[in-house]
């Protein structure tokens, strides 16, 4: 279960691109390709191993002008999915 003070890192085995607001991630471990829409791509972009999940939620709420609860649900759902696919790694807890 993710907590909002956790920080996440991108896996080194995931080549990726963000172009025209959308992201493509290649999961080398499972030979899968993941396509992220504009919101997902923005979440992916700001994951750097230092930014906490709560900061990501605030950022998404602000950029896409949605209330914090909606942003929280969307962010956590995506992050949990990407962790399950070994695309994201939990790097530390603040």
């Amino acid at each position: 279960m993710l907590t909002e003070n956790a920080c996440l890192s991108k896996s080194k085995n995931v080549p990726w691109r963000i172009i025209e607001g959308e992201a493509i991630l290649v999961n080398v471990n499972s030979s899968d390709i993941v396509h992220l829409n504009e919101t997902g791509a923005e979440i992916w972009r700001i994951i750097d191993g230092k930014t906490s999940i709560s900061k990501i939620i605030e950022h998404i709420s602000s950029v896409f002008e949605v209330n914090k609860e909606v942003a929280k649900t969307d962010v956590l759902e995506l992050l949990e999915d990407l962790i399950e696919k070994n695309i994201l790694e939990t790097s530390s807890f603040k």
Partner: peptide, 9 residues
Amino acid sequence: FGNSLIRFF
């Protein structure tokens, strides 16, 4: 772009 890229891949 994204749709094209994922399908192409």
